[in-house]
């Protein structure tokens, strides 16, 4: 029982990291209509930055914040490449984000080499109801919960957040009232970078990160985001938590080498179900 609880808690922590990646995908997709395949790259950039800054002797806190901001800058640069030119279609922008992801490999290898790097996180562990959980895992859960609350407040309560939502809801109407939808798209990419960066900084102490870790991250993040139809943050969070728990259980009960397959299998299943549901709705309205 305590093993089960332990897998559950650790799975929730893994799910939270996936949720941060996925929420970045959702924010960018909602505002710009672009599926950003460079989302995992933001986490890798931030994780590697954190590892370097801490290695240089910068204190905790400052290093992590700087690394998350590096993720936001990476997001903004990706946004400039993907939607910087007026009239770029979401499909073309998607291809550009794939290109950015590949280019980032080269840059990361030049800067950090191709070996995995780690960073010290919160040491130690706590025992909850007989189950041991690493303190860093608890930190991931708390930070993710706080981030989701902040995102909800930002989009639901602030004027700027509502303007971003307006771009997602009706881009033409947003332009009618004078909102610069391109600039809002760039802001969404920066927020996506911030969220990806946060995920990277949080997971680097748990599992070493290298230039190609983005594949695992984007596959998991995309699976969760697709669960939320790329638009609904709360469903995405639920999807990410389910995925994290399913993967950790699979690993815990002896299928450790098949974590990615679990994510891929679930993603394809969800995509097939979503696609058939959408076409049914479409047929009903026609």
């Amino acid at each position: 029982m305590s093993a089960f609880l332990s897998y559950l808690l650790n799975g929730l922590a893994v799910g939270c990291a996936i949720a941060l990646i996925a929420s970045g995908l959702v924010v960018i997709h909602r505002v710009t209509g672009v599926v950003n395949f460079a989302q995992g790259t933001f986490a890798v950039v931030a994780g590697l930055c954190a590892s370097s800054l801490l290695g240089m002797g910068l204190p905790h806190g400052l290093s992590e914040v700087a690394a998350v901001l590096a993720g936001a800058v990476a997001g903004l640069l990706t946004g400039l490449a993907a939607i910087g030119r007026r009239g770029t279609s979401p499909l073309s922008a998607l291809i550009v984000t794939l290109g950015v992801g590949v280019l980032a490999y080269a840059v990361e290898i030049v800067l950090w080499g191709d070996q995995p790097r780690s960073a010290p996180g919160l040491a130690g562990s706590v025992t909850i109801a007989g189950a041991r959980i690493q303190t860093q895992h608890l930190l991931v859960i708390c930070v993710t919960a706080a981030t989701f609350v902040l995102i909800a407040l930002f989009f639901g309560r602030t004027y700027l957040g509502k303007a971003l939502t307006a771009c997602a809801s009706n881009p033409y109407a947003a332009r009618v009232v004078g909102i610069d939808t391109r600039r809002m798209g760039l802001l969404a990419f920066a927020i996506g970078g911030l969220l990806g960066g946060l995920a990277g900084v949080l997971i680097t102490p748990l599992r070493p990160i290298s230039f190609d870790t983005d594949v695992t991250l984007i596959v998991n993040g995309f699976a969760a985001a697709v669960f939320g139809a790329l638009t609904r943050p709360v469903i995405t969070l639920i999807g990410a938590l389910l995925l994290g728990v399913a993967e950790t259980m699979a690993a815990g009960y002896g299928y450790g080498s098949h974590q990615l397959e679990v994510a891929l299998g679930l993603m394809i299943l969800v995509m097939i179900v979503q696609a058939s549901r959408r076409s049914t709705i479409h047929e009903e309205t026609v």
């Binding site: 509502k162 307006a166 809801s169 009706n170």
Partner: peptide, 19 residues
């Protein structure tokens, strides 16, 4: 009309004052 359908009337109006 081209409103923001999922937003409240008050929010629709507030966004009208963007400029």
């Amino acid at each position: 009309r081209q409103l923001f359908p999922d937003m409240s009337v008050a929010d629709n109006l507030a966004l009208g004052g963007w400029r």
